[in-house]
Simulated scan of single mutants.
Amino acid sequence: MAKAAIVVLAGTEGHENAGRVFNALETAKEFAENDGDEVELVFDGAGTQWIPELEDEGHDYHELYQAVRDNAAACDYCSGAFGVEDAVADSGVVTLDDYEGHPSIRSLVADDYEIITF
């Protein structure tokens, strides 16, 4: 049994960041498909900008995102700071504000999650 927290920090600008979010989604999907594994997919910082993009049914990664969406969460503070607070709220993705408005990475580590950043 593996426990992984996939943290997306890459913004939506540029081809390299699209590659990062694709790899994050693919990695999350691999964990989600393995019985006994636990996975959390956290959109943090500029990564919160991906949620409205991925919610768009026309986006190339929409289907992959849908496969792991139930494991997804977003930083509450960063959603506002990066101007996607309303879109994240509309998406229904859970927002995290465990530590000063942000997700608690420490809590994930304390719960034995391996932290993987993209």
Rank of each mutant, 00 (worst) to 15 (best):
73 A>E: 07
34 N>E: 14
35 D>G: 15
3 K>W: 08
62 H>S: 11
98 D>M: 01
83 G>Q: 12
69 R>P: 02
92 G>F: 01
76 D>P: 01
79 S>M: 04
105 I>Y: 05
89 A>V: 04
116 I>Q: 12
95 T>P: 00
37 D>K: 01
49 Q>A: 08
104 S>W: 04
95 T>E: 07
105 I>P: 02
104 S>A: 10
3 K>N: 14
79 S>R: 02
110 A>V: 08
93 V>R: 00
72 A>F: 01
86 D>A: 08
77 Y>A: 09
3 K>D: 10
6 I>R: 02
63 E>V: 07
14 G>K: 10
111 D>I: 00
62 H>D: 12
23 N>F: 11
91 S>P: 04
95 T>R: 03
26 E>D: 13
76 D>Q: 03
78 C>N: 14
63 E>W: 01
15 H>M: 12
47 G>P: 08
116 I>L: 07
42 V>M: 01
43 F>A: 15
15 H>W: 07
99 Y>R: 15
34 N>S: 15
93 V>P: 00
24 A>N: 10
107 S>A: 15
74 A>C: 05
20 R>Q: 13
41 L>R: 05
101 G>H: 10
105 I>H: 02
93 V>W: 00
58 G>V: 06
60 D>C: 00
106 R>T: 11
13 E>W: 06
53 E>I: 07
109 V>A: 15
10 A>I: 07
14 G>Y: 10
41 L>Q: 09
32 A>C: 06
37 D>W: 05
82 F>V: 09
53 E>D: 12
49 Q>Y: 04
4 A>P: 04
59 H>P: 02
71 N>P: 00
60 D>T: 13
15 H>P: 10
107 S>P: 05
75 C>N: 06
33 E>L: 08
23 N>T: 10
110 A>F: 05
104 S>F: 04
31 F>H: 15
65 Y>E: 09
60 D>I: 09
118 F>K: 13
101 G>C: 09
16 E>V: 09
106 R>C: 07
99 Y>P: 00
19 G>R: 11
106 R>N: 14
43 F>P: 08
28 A>P: 09
50 W>E: 14
75 C>I: 02
3 K>I: 10
42 V>K: 01
83 G>R: 11
29 K>L: 15
53 E>Q: 15
77 Y>W: 13
6 I>M: 08
32 A>L: 11
74 A>I: 02
78 C>R: 08
37 D>A: 05
53 E>N: 10
65 Y>R: 04
84 V>W: 02
71 N>Q: 15
97 D>P: 01
94 V>W: 01
93 V>K: 00
91 S>H: 06
81 A>Q: 13
65 Y>K: 04
6 I>V: 15
63 E>D: 15
84 V>A: 02
32 A>W: 04
29 K>Q: 14
25 L>F: 13
88 V>G: 02
5 A>Y: 04
80 G>P: 01
25 L>V: 09
10 A>L: 05
13 E>H: 11
93 V>E: 03
63 E>G: 11
13 E>K: 13
95 T>H: 03
70 D>F: 00
89 A>T: 12
8 V>E: 05
90 D>R: 05
83 G>T: 08
108 L>H: 08
76 D>R: 03
102 H>V: 06
18 A>M: 09
30 E>S: 15
61 Y>V: 06
2 A>R: 14
80 G>W: 03
59 H>S: 04
106 R>Y: 11
24 A>L: 07
